[in-house]
Design a protein around this nucleic acid. Sequence first.
DNA 1: CGCCGATTTGATCGTGGTCAACAATAGTGG
DNA 2: CCACTATTGTTGACCACGATCAAATCGGCG
Lengths: 232, 232
Amino acid sequence: MSYCDTCLVRNRAICAALDNNEVEALNGIGRRKQLEPGDPLIWEGEDSLLVANVIDGILKLTNCTEDGREQIVGVVYPSDFIGRPFGETSAYSVTALTEAKVCIFSRSDFDRFAQEHPALEHKLLKRTLEELDRTRNWMLLLARKSAEEKVATFLLDMSARLVEPGCEAPQDGALEEFDLPFSRQQIGDILGLTIETVSRQMTRLKRDGMIDLPTRRRVKIIDRFALEDMAG
Amino acid sequence: MSYCDTCLVRNRAICAALDNNEVEALNGIGRRKQLEPGDPLIWEGEDSLLVANVIDGILKLTNCTEDGREQIVGVVYPSDFIGRPFGETSAYSVTALTEAKVCIFSRSDFDRFAQEHPALEHKLLKRTLEELDRTRNWMLLLARKSAEEKVATFLLDMSARLVEPGCEAPQDGALEEFDLPFSRQQIGDILGLTIETVSRQMTRLKRDGMIDLPTRRRVKIIDRFALEDMAG
DNA sequence: CGCCGATTTGATCGTGGTCAACAATAGTGG
DNA sequence: CCACTATTGTTGACCACGATCAAATCGGCG
């Protein structure tokens, strides 16, 4: 009896490429790990020792300059894959933002297993290509958008991403109200802004009637059309 | 007799994963295409109809906002792979920056061929992972570095990337003097800066004795150590 | 209630954008 | 080879956006 039988992301993670026997074999080389908010999993620049599937929770990928400026270069959600297979070192750090459950593998074990299972590699390739598309799109935001556009884009992105799988979405797969899984500081780290600028733009969007902020973490989209317009 | 026999990047492109018979088969579904500077190959948002290997020349990948702001989200060199396999649409445009020669495949043909050749997919996966690492690193630059740091980083990156394959490098694989394949406008599009700011920072680096600018396109690195320091 | 971290708000400053003029280079044709 | 033009790059003046520094306010928790 393997963990995988009851795994919440069994059919959404890359494991979906495998049949039951293969999943059983993969299960043999993996183990579960529970993370608390702030717990690090992988360090930038260190040897790439492990890879993992996210079962539950949200984690951030970060890059830092020598003098300590941090930039969040990616955020991963349940069923996403983390780590750097087929490479010596990891180009970024991975840290839990919420309580999180991950299914980790030693990189060498995983590399070997993947090479023997083309369907798994195929799934991983598709995911990596999608992630690259998303990342490149985010570059446009970082390099060219104003603070206002960045925050509007971010909120729309969140409303699309925070939809629980299996939960019927009220409107075309996007939520109208949700709790942000990020602090203002983290939002700043994602958008390349300071905490003060994020705060100011949020209150501005509220003042202009596009959103409401019932609590610090909660966001309600009032005028999605205007917000999309603002996002540029 | 296939084109591939005399292909300059036969052993560096993803084709290196294939034996001669397989390359012959791949050759059957591909064809060469010559591009002039400015020629487009793929459009952002359009159906992903083709993928390609770069044989010679340099091409840019770009994203645009609705109101026309452009950001270069990637630059590809000989032996690099372009296009979006296994996806319906392309998230970015591809345009030649120099005269270029590419080996193009219909996406559906390539997808089918790739699925039947795991070694090719493996090579493509490794490349995509490397590209993702590079792209994420660039996000840090776009979001957090000052104009001065951006330009210094860019010049160092160029000095490392413009090394001709097979040519012995004077110093550890990095050139001390080279011609930029980009206009000031394009450098701005890569760094998320305006043309004026790029120009100002270049003259500043020259004034400070870190580089020399013999012609508009040529750069000579005088004090690499200081430049690395500046790059942050 | 009092404490502490997170967030908001305010005042000020500096970097890089914008607009404009000018210089240098490449390209064209007599 | 030299005008003449078009393109590309440089420089200057000014301004706005977002960063920085500082203070006030909110919210959670003992």
